[in-house]
């Protein structure tokens, strides 16, 4: 299982003239977990929609495992890149949770026990195994969101892209999404997530890509991206570092992007 993403000088101009991507370069290694952040309209969704061919480059190249996406059908790229959309209600159609999750694997050619195994595994991972035979519309919005994620996980693609996976999730839901990301990475799969939840980003992803006006303006670990020197850049794309990072900086504790890092830094300061 590979999962290498290569984006070179990617430009995308929508038919009405909006230049959504303006020369993006990005390389994500197999098994890496990367968060893509930025203000609304910065080009995050446009970027990830190039990974499975939903959008085609106006200029530049997108390669998945060395294969140029330009000449590949979406239905074929779907076997490599699973993209979970933000709104689950824009994809749910089946009368049972199990059938909804089985839709992707069946499209990829899986049949019989292989489908059951993929569906059961995905539902277990998102915590919906106990509602496999329930109508999706009997679930709450946050669980429908997890269902949409499960329907992508069941396809067992080497690359998983999650668009705003924590939107509408309570603390337990966010923790579940973190668990999903960690599990995928442990399984050797590449994970890309678009998010506006900086706390979730800092605590879950070892690499953060910040976009502004169709360009990558920061690409570094959370300690650097959320460190005080990067704050002006973050502010320019209307992002705010997590509370832990701001508290740590104000106390002169250095980079503390997560609450755990902040507690460690405070403890170290007290000990010294």
């Amino acid at each position: 299982m590979d999962g290498v993403i290569e984006v070179e000088r990617l430009v995308h101009v929508y038919p009405e003239g909006t230049r959504a991507l303006d020369g993006v370069d990005l390389r994500v290694a197999a098994g890496e977990a990367v968060a893509v952040v930025g203000q609304n309209g910065s080009g995050k969704s446009t970027l990830v929609r190039h990974l499975n061919g939903l959008l085609r480059p106006t200029d530049g190249v997108v390669r998945i495992d060395g294969r140029d996406t330009a000449g590949t059908k979406v239905a074929c790229l779907a076997a490599l890149v699973g993209l979970a959309f933000q709104d689950p209600d824009k994809q749910i159609f089946a009368g049972r949770v199990r059938a909804e999750v089985a839709f992707g694997p069946r499209n990829l050619g899986l049949r019989g026990p292989a489908v059951d195994e993929a569906v059961t595994g995905a539902l277990r991972l998102v915590g919906l195994a106990d509602v496999a035979d329930v109508n999706p519309y009997d679930l709450g919005q946050s669980r429908r969101k997890l269902l949409a994620i499960a329907s992508i996980l069941a396809m067992r693609t080497p690359i998983v892209v999650l668009d705003e996976p924590t939107t509408g999730q309570d603390l337990r839901g966010v923790a579940r999404v973190q668990e999903i990301v960690r599990s995928l990475v442990a399984d050797g799969r590449t994970v890309l997530a678009i998010s506006h939840d900086m706390r979730f980003v800092a605590e879950t992803f070892p690499r953060v890509v910040v976009m502004r006006a169709g360009r990558v303006v920061l690409d570094a670990p959370p300690a650097e991206v959320f460190g005080a020197p990067s704050w002006p850049t973050l502010a320019s794309t209307y992002l705010e570092p997590p509370l832990a990072a701001r508290v740590g900086a104000h106390l002169g504790l250095g980079a503390t992007p997560t609450e755990a890092a902040l507690v460690d830094a405070v403890a170290a300061r007290l000990r010294s």
Binding site: L54, A75, F85, Q91, F93, L108, S151
Partner: peptide, 30 residues
């Protein structure tokens, strides 16, 4: 948007007439 979401799950909307007909429910339902 729905077509994009279903294509991301491997629904073939560019293939044969049979494949396209199979995609009617996943597209119209949502």
């Amino acid at each position: 948007v729905i077509a994009a979401a279903q294509r991301s799950r491997g629904l073939d909307t560019e293939g044969s007439l049979r494949a396209r007909l199979r995609g009617v429910l996943p597209l119209v339902g949502p």
